[in-house]
């Protein structure tokens, strides 16, 4: 199983980053072989839509699951569409990648609540998520 973990650093000593779209990098771990790779997150500097971009990024690596602190509505929708399982870890800023994997293996991670998509049903858009629009 391939799992992407949001991290605040660029090597294996990096700590867990509870932000998904704005995480500095993702560590993609294979839970069977324990192989790992670290990719910096290009979306960290995006002016808007970081959650969507980060979700598409991890989807391209065909991960099965992601571990982060929380997910915005757009990231949630994109990850759901890609059939990527989302796990949450409250706090966790002091944990390193190994600690996060241990918590995952021990079944100690949570799952996100379905975010409130106020625009999801409101205007008959067909697709689309929340109603927050980035400013120009």
């Amino acid at each position: 199983m391939k799992i992407a973990i949001s991290i605040n650093g660029s090597d294996l000593n990096a700590l867990f980053d509870p932000r998904f779209g704005r995480a500095q990098a993702f560590c993609i771990v294979d839970s069977e072989s324990a192989d790992y790779q670290i990719f910096s997150n290009a979306a960290v500097a995006a002016s808007g839509g970081a959650g969507v971009a980060a979700a598409q990024f991890v989807a391209e690596y065909r991960v099965d699951a992601v571990i982060s602190g929380s997910y915005g509505p757009n990231a949630y929708e994109t990850l759901s569409a890609a059939n990527i399982k989302m796990y949450t870890l409250a706090g966790g800023g002091e944990l390193n990648i190994q600690d996060v994997i241990e918590k995952f293996s021990a079944g100690e991670l949570g799952e996100p609540q379905v975010p409130d998509h106020e625009g999801f049903h409101g205007r008959g858009r067909g697709f689309g998520g929340g109603r927050r629009r980035g400013s120009f």
Partner: peptide, 18 residues
Amino acid sequence: FHAIVTVGKKVLVFPELC
């Protein structure tokens, strides 16, 4: 603006980012 995205066999549009 990451307002349109393809994941697998799905395409998503985020009007609020467009």
